[in-house]
Amino acid sequence: MTGGTFTRDELVEAFARFEQTVDHAAKTRDWDSWVDQYTDDVVYVEHAAGTMRGREQVRPWIWQTMENFPGNHMTSFPSLWTVYDEDADRVLCELDNPMRDPGDGTIITATNISIVTYAGDGKWRRQEDVYNPLRFVSAAMKWCRKAAELGTLPDEAEKWMTRVGAQMGGPA
Rank of each mutant, 00 (worst) to 15 (best):
V22K: 00
V45T: 14
D101L: 09
A14D: 02
F15S: 01
R163T: 15
C144E: 14
F136M: 06
W143N: 02
M52A: 03
W61C: 00
T2A: 15
E13F: 02
Y84H: 00
E158N: 13
G4S: 13
M168Q: 05
E19N: 09
A119I: 12
E10W: 07
L134W: 03
D155H: 09
T2R: 14
Q167E: 11
D104Q: 13
A147G: 07
N68F: 14
E67I: 11
T162E: 14
G103Q: 08
T82N: 00
D85C: 13
L11C: 02
C93D: 00
Q37G: 14
T65F: 03
G4P: 14
E56W: 01
C93E: 02
V137G: 05
L150A: 11
D32H: 03
L11W: 05
I107Q: 04
R100M: 11
A49Y: 15
I62G: 01
D30C: 11
R145V: 12
V164M: 13
T51D: 05
W34E: 10
T39K: 08
E149G: 11
M161T: 10
D87N: 13
E10T: 08
P78L: 00
M161C: 01
Y38Q: 06
L150P: 15
V164F: 06
Q127P: 01
V116A: 02
N112E: 11
W63K: 00
T152N: 06
G151W: 15
A140G: 02
R55K: 13
T75Q: 02
V130G: 03
L153D: 11
R126N: 03
M161W: 14
H73E: 05
G165L: 15
E19Y: 00
Y44E: 01
K142C: 12
G3T: 01
D129N: 05
Q37W: 06
M1I: 03
Q127Y: 04
T117W: 12
L80C: 02
A49K: 07
M66R: 08
H24R: 06
V137Y: 06
A26M: 13
P133T: 13
T21D: 00
P102W: 13
W63L: 05
T2G: 14
W81Q: 04
F77H: 10
I113E: 05
G170F: 03
V116F: 04
T51Q: 00
E86A: 05
R90D: 10
M141L: 09
L150Y: 12
A172F: 11
V83L: 08
V43Q: 01
T106F: 09
G4H: 11
V45Q: 06
T51C: 07
V12D: 12
K146M: 12
D129L: 07
R125I: 06
P154G: 06
A157Y: 13
W31Y: 04
F6K: 01
S33V: 12
D129E: 00
M66T: 08
H24A: 10
P102A: 10
R100F: 08
H47F: 15
D36A: 11
D85E: 09
M66H: 06
E156Y: 07
A14G: 00
A148M: 08
A48E: 09
H47W: 15
G170K: 12
C93A: 04
R135C: 09
G103E: 08
G122F: 02
R53H: 07
T109A: 09
L134H: 07
R163G: 03
I108N: 03
Y118E: 01
F18M: 08
I62Y: 01
A140K: 15
D23K: 10
W143H: 02
A172I: 09
D89K: 00
Y118T: 00
Q64S: 03
G50Q: 04
T75K: 04
I108M: 04
